[in-house]
Amino acid sequence: MDKINLLIIVTVISLFISFFLAFFLVTVKTKHKISNSLFAVFLIITAIDVSETLFNLMVNSPSNLGMLRNIFAFLQIPVFYLYILSVCYSDFKLKPKYILHLLPFLIANVILLPRFYTVDVASKINFIKNYQSMIELQFNHILIHIQVVIYIIAVFMVLRKAKKLYLENYAGTSINSYNWLFQFTVVLTILYLIALVKNIFKFSDYPYISEWIKIGLLSFQLLIICWYLFKALNNPGLFRNIDSKLKLVSDIISEEKNDAPLAVNEKQYNEELLKLQQYMIEEKPFLNPSVTIQDISNAIEIPVRDLSLLINHKLEQHFYDFVNTYRVEDAMDILKDATKSKVTILEILYDVGFNSKSSFNTAFKKHTGNTPTAYRNSL
């Protein structure tokens, strides 16, 4: 099978799956409509980007539409960035300021106006034949790679902050979605790095290497899309988000230092701590897999800000770890109970508020140094 036929086959499969998943995302009934729509747009833009082989079969000469198809790649990473924001934050809304993300796309098109978009077909053909020496194309390739680097860094920063906010305010299973989004972003970063290598060869003396890398990229991209589809369909409740208005404890402390140092009332601190601990032991809110710091704040009538400082700063524990400590302690009591020796580890983890075996094992080993099974066997 020659290179062209292989490219056509991989492209057709990739386009079919991309459009199928995009259609599914925009038609499925869900409260995460914005997130689904943004990822559908990301898939469509990606499909437009990988359709080059089929497009060239239908259009024999360089055209404005063909060039515009290439420039659509500038929209891919900004849409992915907005998608990450929408997944991480429950109050995400599309705002007029996001139009600024179109700027690189507009710049890339504007600089092509004089010597490509506004000239005749013969001039377009000459432009494409001498693409390696065309300053406009070189500029656009540099611009898109700068754009990718900036946005990838921005995505990782968003994920890092969202994870910190989650750990300080939530104790459910949403941490799995951030871990998965991090993995997905890493894989996408690798994809863009490979694309960078491909473009370097495209403007070198070995452009044929670029074509073979393109086949590898298409196949890799196809696998990523299938991976996402598999993950989304098997974990429909995976993507849950948090309130972007929440502040990190470090920021709260910084604000207090900048405003006016708060007098530390040790007695009040001890009273609030005792109240919190008593509530955790007697009411066992940790048995709720989705318990949040807001839930506990409402129950014991301590403001979220104060409770967050108490747990995350004074006790030097994330809320996530704080709640899991009580869950593990409860699990240890069950494991020690001889009358419950027939209860399985899986049943125990659900009983004490965990929602996955991996998170239970991680928390249990962090707290005891042993896995639940090893702990039970050592008794």
Rank of each mutant, 00 (worst) to 15 (best):
L276D: 09
N324G: 02
A338P: 02
L248P: 00
H318K: 10
I334P: 01
E266L: 14
H313G: 01
H313A: 10
T325R: 12
V328Q: 03
A299F: 14
I293D: 00
L246E: 06
V323C: 01
F319K: 02
K275P: 00
S244I: 03
A260L: 11
V343Q: 14
R327G: 00
N288C: 05
H318D: 07
F286H: 04
Y326R: 05
L307I: 04
A263T: 14
E255G: 08
S250Q: 13
A338G: 04
D259R: 15
K340I: 01
I281L: 05
Y320R: 10
L310C: 02
K284W: 05
P289D: 00
L310S: 02
N258Q: 15
L310I: 04
E271K: 11
L315D: 00
E256R: 14
Q317M: 06
D259A: 08
I253Q: 08
I242K: 04
L274I: 10
D259C: 03
P261H: 14
Q278E: 10
Q277V: 07
V249Q: 10
N270K: 12
Y320P: 11
K342N: 13
Y326D: 00
Y326L: 02
A331L: 03
D251I: 13
Y269P: 01
K342P: 03
N324C: 02
P289M: 04
R327F: 01
I293N: 04
R305D: 07
I300D: 02
A338N: 10
T339N: 13
K247E: 05
L309F: 08
L248F: 09
P303S: 09
N298R: 15
F319R: 02
Y326I: 05
N270L: 08
V264S: 06
L274K: 15
R305W: 06
K267C: 07
P285L: 13
S244D: 06
A299E: 07
E329N: 14
A299M: 08
L346M: 07
N288R: 10
K284R: 10
K340E: 01
I242E: 04
E283V: 09
K284M: 09
D337P: 06
Q268F: 14
D337W: 09
Y320L: 08
I293W: 10
E347D: 06
D321A: 07
Y320H: 12
D321L: 02
D243P: 09
E256Y: 13
L248A: 08
V264D: 02
K275M: 03
R327H: 04
E316G: 08
E329D: 08
R327V: 02
I296R: 05
Q277M: 12
T344N: 06
R327E: 01
L246Q: 12
R305Y: 10
E266V: 12
E271C: 06
L246D: 04
K257N: 11
V328N: 04
Q317A: 03
S290Q: 10
V249R: 07
D306E: 14
A338L: 11
Q294M: 15
D333N: 12
I253R: 14
M280P: 03
K245S: 13
L346N: 07
V264Q: 08
F322S: 00
Y326N: 02
F322M: 02
P303V: 09
E316H: 15
K336G: 05
V304H: 05
I345W: 06
L309C: 06
L246K: 14
L287W: 01
E329P: 01
L310H: 05
H318V: 00
D337C: 06
S254V: 09
S250A: 13
N270R: 13
L276C: 03
